[in-house]
Nucleic acid binder design. Structure first.
Length: 418
RNA sequence: GGCCCCGUGGUCUAGCCAGGUUAAGACGCCGGCUUUUCAAGCCGUGUAACGCGGGUUCAAAUCCCGCCGGGGCUACCA
C-alpha cells in the first residue's frame, strides 16, 4: 500500500483530509480509496510506546531543551544522550545507537546516510503520554502495512528517525521516495500568495485535469527525449519515479496556460461545451455550443471562454471606451451600408457574410478594420471577440441586425457625433 | 553551530552514473509571417545557461577536493 504524505504543517483534521481527497478526485487520479487517514489512534500509540519503555528502547527523561543544548556544548555537538528517570511524567526519548549510521535507501535520492552519533535521542512522547509525529507515523505505517511512502523533500531528515522507531518496534520499514518541493516565482516555497498554488485553485482558474497532470509530471521529471505534451495514458506508461530530479522547481503558470490551451483546442466540441457550461454554471445548450465552436481556438483556460462569448448568449457589453475608440470617422455610414448588405445574405453563414461585407468594403474603399471594428463593437460591445463573420453567423441575422440598428440609433444622436 | 539535500539560459527539463558533435528540447521574451480585433498558429543561424576556484586528463556540465549560494532537520510541531 502506498502512502502519500501531504506537506502541510497544519495538524490534520477530517476537514482538510476531505479537501485533499477532493483535489485528488478532480485530478481524476486512479486509486483505491482505502483508509485515508488515522484518527483516534492514541490508544494504539500508547500501547506501542509502553512496549519500547518496557524493553528499554525508550526511556523517560526530564531534560528540557536547554538541558539538551548544554549537554551538546559539553560533548562537542554530538547527539544528545539522556539518563533514564523514574519520573513517569517526564517526556519519553528513543535510545539512538552511538555507533553506525542509519541508511535511508531513497528511490529518488539514492542512499542517504545519517551518522547515529550525530542524532539526538529524540522525544517520541510528551510528559502527558501523547505521542509525537515521528513516532505516530512510524506506528501507523507499520499497522497499515504501508509499503511505499511518497512525500516532500522536507521529510528526508525525519526519515532516519522513523526508521529508528521502526527498528525498535521490530517492523519492516517501507520504501521511501522524497520529491523535490515546489516553489513560487520568488523562489520561496509555494504558498497561497503565489496565486493558483493549490489544485483547488487550479480548478477554479479553469485548467483541465489532463493539462495539470501533464504539467505537474514535468516538474522535476522529464523523459530522455524531452517529450513535452503527453496524454494520461502515455504519462502512466512512461513515468518512472526513479527519474524524478532532486532539485526543487519553480511553478510557472505561463507554461501551464500554454499546455492547457493545447489540451483545450484538442477537445471534441461536445465535451468542450459541457466543460465550459459546468464552469460558468449554465446549460450546455445549442447557443452555447455554437459560441464555444468559434471560441475554442482562442481560449487557453475555461475561465477565458465566457468573456469571449458572453455577448452571443446575453446582450452586448457596455464598454464606453471601446465605443468612443471605434465609433467615429464615418462608422455610421459603414454600419448603415452593412445593415443593408446583411439583410440580403442567404444563407446567413460566415462565407456569405464575408462576401457581402467585402462588397461594402469595396464600395466605400476602406480598409477592413474600419468596417469590422464598428460592427464588432455594435454586436459585442467590445473591441475583442472571435472572428467577426463567425460571430455574426452565431448571433443570427435577427439579433445581428437589431444590434447594428441599436448602434446606429445611438450614433444618430450623439453629443458630438460625426 | 551540527547533520542532510540541492545548484545547466528568466523558468521547466535532457545530457552527468559508464568524460569526447557547435551543450539539446519546451515555456517566456524578441523579431517575422498571417491578419477584421485579441489570441491562437507557423517561421527564425534571434535571446540567454553548465554557481565559483582548484585538481585529474590529450579532453570535464560529466570524475575528485575546497568554497559560495539556496533549502530541510536540529521542538514535549506536523
Amino acid at each position: 500500500m502506498l502512502r502519500i504524505e501531504d506537506t502541510d504543517r497544519e495538524r490534520s483534521t477530517p476537514e482538510n483530509v476531505e479537501q485533499i481527497l477532493d483535489a485528488l478526485r478532480w485530478l481524476e487520479l486512479d486509486w483505491d480509496e482505502g483508509p485515508v487517514s488515522q484518527f483516534g489512534r492514541a490508544e494504539r500509540h500508547r500501547e506501542r510506546l509502553e512496549e519500547l519503555l518496557a524493553t528499554g528502547a525508550a526511556y523517560h527523561d526530564t531534560a528540557t531543551g536547554d538541558d539538551v543544548k548544554l549537554w551538546k556544548e559539553r560533548h562537542g555537538n554530538r547527539g544528545y544522550r539522556g539518563e533514564p528517570s523514574d519520573d513517569p511524567a517526564a517526556a519519553v526519548r528513543l535510545r539512538v545507537p552511538d555507533e553506525g549510521e542509519t541508511l535511508v535507501a531513497d528511490v529518488i535520492r539514492g542512499d542517504v546516510r545519517f551518522p547515529n552519533e550525530a542524532m539526538d535521542d529524540f522525544v517520541i512522547a510528551r510528559g502527558d503520554g501523547t505521542v509525537l509525529y515521528n513516532f505516530a507515523v512510524a506506528v501507523d505505517d507499520a499497522d497499515m502495512r504501508i509499503t511505499d511512502v511518497v512525500r516532500g523533500d522536507d521529510h528526508l531528515s525525519n526519515t532516519p528517525k522513523q526508521l529508528l522507531v521502526m527498528r525498535a518496534l521490530g517492523v519492516e520499514p517501507p520504501r521511501y521516495a522524497h520529491l523535490p518541493l515546489l516553489h513560487g516565482p520568488d523562489g520561496k516555497k509555494l504558498s497561497k500568495r503565489h496565486g493558483a498554488a493549490s489544485v483547488q485553485e487550479l480548478r477554479d482558474a479553469g485548467y483541465l485535469p489532463a493539462a495539470v497532470r501533464n504539467y505537474l509530471a514535468l516538474l522535476g521529471w522529464g523523459t530522455s527525449d524531452d517529450t513535452t505534451i503527453m496524454g494520461t495514458d502515455e504519462l502512466v506508461e512512461r513515468f518512472e519515479i526513479e527519474r524524478v530530479g532532486r532539485s526543487s522547481a519553480i511553478f510557472d503558470e505561463k507554461k501551464l496556460r500554454w499546455l492547457n490551451g493545447r489540451f483545450m483546442r484538442e477537445l471534441p466540441l461536445g465535451e468542450y461545451t459541457e466543460l465550459v457550461a459546468a464552469h460558468v454554471g449554465r446549460a450546455p445548450d445549442e447557443t452555447l455550443r455554437a459560441a464555444c465552436g468559434i471560441a475554442q481556438e482562442k481560449a487557453q483556460t475555461l475561465e477565458e471562454v465566457w468573456p469571449l462569448i458572453r455577448f452571443l448568449v446575453e446582450g452586448p457589453a457596455d464598454d464606453e471606451r471601446a465605443w468612443r475608440k471605434v465609433m467615429k470617422d464615418g462608422a455610421g455610414t459603414l454600419l448603415q451600408a452593412s445593415l443593408e448588405a446583411l439583410r440580403g445574405v442567404e444563407p446567413f453563414e460566415p462565407e456569405h457574410i464575408e462576401e457581402a461585407l467585402g462588397g461594402v468594403l469595396a464600395a466605400h474603399d476602406v480598409k477592413p478594420g474600419k468596417l469590422y471594428q464598428p460592427i464588432r463593437v455594435a454586436i459585442s460591445g467590445t473591441t475583442v471577440s472571435p472572428g467577426i463573420f463567425e460571430s455574426l453567423a452565431v448571433l443570427g441575422r435577427n439579433r445581428s441586425l437589431e444590434r447594428i440598428e441599436a448602434a446606429l440609433e445611438r450614433l444618430g444622436s450623439p453629443p458630438n457625433g460625426d
